[in-house]
Design a protein around this nucleic acid. Structure first.
Lengths: 348, 348
DNA sequence: GGAGTTATTGTGAGCGCTAACAAGACGCTG
DNA sequence: CAGCGTCTTGTTAGCGCTCACAATAACTCC
């Protein structure tokens, strides 16, 4: 039943033989040109180029892959219920892959940790993929079995030293957040963390604790969220019940929204009574009431970088060191942060 | 430089010849089993099955594709700056494709309409893809050139009769929205539309006008947005300047957020003075202040459906008719909608 | 029971490409 | 100018699979 798709009048694509005939060379010369274009006489090179463009030749990747036993397909794993997964990150990754001649297949990780591990296992043993880029943390089960047959990069994990600069899990901006809030007179903090399985969540939390300690401030507690606004809301209720918190740092914007809403529902004003900081700079953040102070991330660049890291690994190269180069994160101050509650301010 | 990737100790995958040898049949028998398993003696079938699972055989898709000239790769086109493109839709599409044995490649449409058209052109003439599923409206330029070589489905476009039920562009829920608002006493409406290039935007707008007329209400105007909250904000300022609007329907949640914020900034209260309706039910909607009334969509199902439509077309089959079956959209009433402004209500 | 049918299995070729090797063209030395 | 290395190009084979066809086995019928 698939035949029709083929039959559908698509003209037969030109092969390197067609190109070779037109250029008056052997097919191998064409193949060589396609490979790197080296070691060909300028004249030959030119004729091949001409024939190539004249026939609008495009290589048949299936044939190439079959013969060379190289693979041109990478799998990107995204969270299944990816309500909070930025599509732009995927775009960045896909773009980087395409730039290197790779095809991208997207699979969503579904189900329980166990089901995910199984799914991953199957991918890893699959024979026809060049590598895996996962935006989902690796299930523990899989991390154990060291039979890594397929190169795999888990975004944010590969440079697991805390606060790896410029990576997805880079938590350095947390320092700036805390310092900023401290400068506004805040001393009593609260952190709404993401799921511990995610390196980014772990790093933000770690840096939070570090910064609090370093600046001699107090953390009145932390809540474990799941990136969702609902979990932020739950944390917000906890914060309201607590006494004295004036500054909250949530590990992503969604949870920050939940926190603000919970505080609002409890009659606590943001930022008058409590300041709230998010992370991600989702577009609606500036239209929220109050608009949300956050950390802007270049998610596209981050996705692309993760992909480049994977491809480097596939090729056995050194990972590209463009990492620390670009400033990928930036504090955005908006209405949700303000001076600490008046009782701590002296009148002029 | 790619050699390492291959060398990396991955054992050579078993071929159908290995399987055939083990089962004591010819390779063709194995191939036949793989195709549909029909016309084989029960005994043979069993032996092949056993050999297959014993060797953990997985077919080499490159070889299959090369020989059969069938393709197993579909391309999904997503908007480049897809801040508002739900990743779940992609997941749904990818899942549906995988279920039918297809690989999914994601490309982001970038740049101007012209650049996009070119990009698309290249995809369409590319020889190694089975079909294209686009979540981005087709540029006019391309729509013109009827040389459709590759099957292509533009989500929401294929059933371009307005209000195609259950499709991405299904605007029927707009009727319910207007009816709901009318029941609350609203008579003066405003619509913030999406870009006209998008079928979904066109349909929502069309149904809006239709419903207004059918119910004998008044539309005080429409604004052309671009799905972004910023464009919603601009529309909101316009609405504030206008006099008498009490109900706003925005074509997506993001724009609704912008509208609400603009009204808020102009001292207009939502929902006391003006009611606002969105569309999409993004997760933060219920935590916005005020929480947003909207239309819930099962984006995952919608994505999957579009993909099934594409695959059916690739196979030359009839498109699956599961469309109208599921109720994919549902009104969600929250705080942003309320009774029309008091001056229009009679005291009890 | 032999001819004619029909189910079931086997054989050879080739999809488009690249790897490996072979061969020709060219330039240099002695 | 024979002899040798180097640069450039050509020839052959085969990746794993499916197609088209050939061959056999298993039935049917008179």
């Amino acid at each position: 039943m698939v035949q029709e798709a083929v039959a559908r009048g698509r003209a037969k694509a030109p092969t390197i033989y067609d190109v070779a005939a037109l250029a008056g060379v052997s097919h191998q010369t064409v193949s060589r040109y396609l490979k790197d274009g080296k070691g060909l006489k300028p004249g030959t090179l030119e004729r091949v180029e001409k024939a190539l463009s004249e026939l609008r030749y495009t290589p048949n990747l299936a044939a190439r892959s079959l013969r060379s036993r190289k693979l041109y397909r990478v799998v990107v794993v995204v969270p299944e219920a990816s309500l909070y997964f930025p599509a732009r990150m995927l775009n960045g990754a896909a773009g980087a892959a395409h730039a290197r001649g790779y095809r991208v297949d997207v699979v969503a990780m579904e189900g329980t940790a166990q089901a995910r591990a199984l799914q991953l296992e199957r991918l890893l043993t699959g024979e026809d993929i060049a590598g895996i880029l996962s935006f989902v943390p690796r299930p523990k089960a899989t991390a154990a079995t060291g039979t890594a047959t397929v190169p795999m990069v888990v975004a944010g994990e590969y440079d697991n030293k805390m606060r790896a600069r410029g990576s997805l899990a880079d938590g350095t901006a947390v320092h700036s957040i805390i310092r900023e809030l401290a400068a506004l007179g805040h001393t009593n903090f609260f952190h709404v963390a993401g799921p511990a399985a995610w390196p980014a969540a772990r790093n933000r939390k770690a840096v939070y604790q570090e910064a609090i300690a370093a600046l001699g401030l107090t953390s009145l507690g932390m809540a474990a969220g799941d990136w969702s606004p609902a979990s932020g809301y739950a944390a917000g209720k906890k914060i309201a019940a607590l006494n004295g918190v004036t500054a909250v740092f949530a590990a992503n914007d969604q949870m920050a929204f939940g926190v603000i809403r919970a505080l609002h529902d409890q009659g606590i004003r943001v930022p008058v009574d409590v300041s709230v900081f998010g992370w991600d700079d989702v577009p609606e953040g500036s239209y929220f009431i109050p608009s949300l102070s956050t950390v802007h991330m270049d998610v596209e660049a981050l996705g692309a970088r993760s992909m480049r890291e994977l491809i480097a690994r596939i090729h056995g190269e050194e990972p590209p060191q463009d990492a620390a180069a670009l400033p990928l994160m930036e504090l955005v101050l908006r209405e949700s942060t303000g001076p600490a509650a008046p009782r701590q301010l002296k009148p002029a």
